[in-house]
Design a protein around this nucleic acid. Structure first.
Lengths: 153, 153
DNA sequence: ATTCTTGCAAACCATTTGCACAAGG
DNA sequence: CCTTGTGCAAATGGTTTGCAAGAAT
């Protein structure tokens, strides 16, 4: 199963990262990683907190922030700031590179994918002597209202 | 002079916007607009506050935030959140569409420009029934350290 | 005159921090 | 055991808000 593969691969990546950095392998850290990889969309820290509480796994905010910091550092999680002051996160592994259309009014986010972005990234980086880690393309605007069709159109 | 043209055009756009929306044309609002368009790079609200103070023009934070909100609404200013919690802003008019390379370690920001992005935006929007207002492409990574050349290389 | 804006300071709230206790190595 | 990590609660700091005084129309 691809999903289980992802879970265990990710666990291994995190384990290796923790060992390399001399950080401890605490149950909280793996529980948070697992919770994050059980979801597919975006989430903020507060939601993550609630999700885990609902599964009767209590972690403190401090630990959530601390662990997310580690997960960002080893590129297992991506952080977004869609113009609001609440940071949004999402899993980064086996997730398909994608970018975001953001409705300025409603805050609704649509994902899309365009491989041509990679070329732009490559060009920009080579021109400026820059090594890319990841990118985020946000397109702000508004979702077109569906047009009501009259009979006979 | 192109720069003076910009200043007065922008003032006119703002004036029309304020009139259309029934907002008052206060000196503070135009002073803030003018200060923003006297700079070219990114700035945060605190810096803007200091810049204006140095010119002996005192505005309150509330007014700064309020006015920036209006300027965002009429697309004279763009807001960025480069992963930190401090919002960064920049002028949007006559500024050349550009995007950003962000050094994850130092926070240094490099601007670049690639017209191919427009096509990606156009494609994504038409595929999802979306009307774009503006976009931001952030490429996170690290600036390559300049390699010392040995004699004979 | 009336209503919107400003300035000030207090309130907000996501995130960070300090500290005592717990637990990984 | 020693040191790092966790939980709790208090602190931080950018942004927002309430309200009285001031200014635009």
């Amino acid at each position: 199963m691809a999903e289980n593969d992802t879970r265990s691969t990710v666990k291994q990546i995190f384990t290796e990262y923790l060992e390399k950095k001399g950080h401890r392998k605490t149950p909280e850290r793996f529980a948070i990683l697992d919770e994050i990889y059980s979801r597919t969309g975006h989430f903020d820290v507060e939601s993550l907190n609630i999700f885990m509480k609902n599964k009767n796994y209590r972690v403190s905010r401090a630990t959530l922030y601390n662990t997310i910091e580690l997960l960002l550092d080893c590129n297992l999680v991506i952080k977004h700031q869609f113009g609001k002051n609440i940071a949004q996160y999402e899993r980064a592994y086996q997730c398909g590179q994608h970018d975001h259309l953001i409705d300025s009014e409603t805050g609704k986010v649509i994902e899309f994918c365009d491989p041509r972005i990679q070329e732009i990234v490559r060009t920009a980086c080579s021109m400026h002597g820059f090594t890319p880690l990841y990118h985020s393309l946000y397109i702000y605007g508004s979702l077109d209202k569906p047009v009501k069709k009259k009979k006979g159109d």
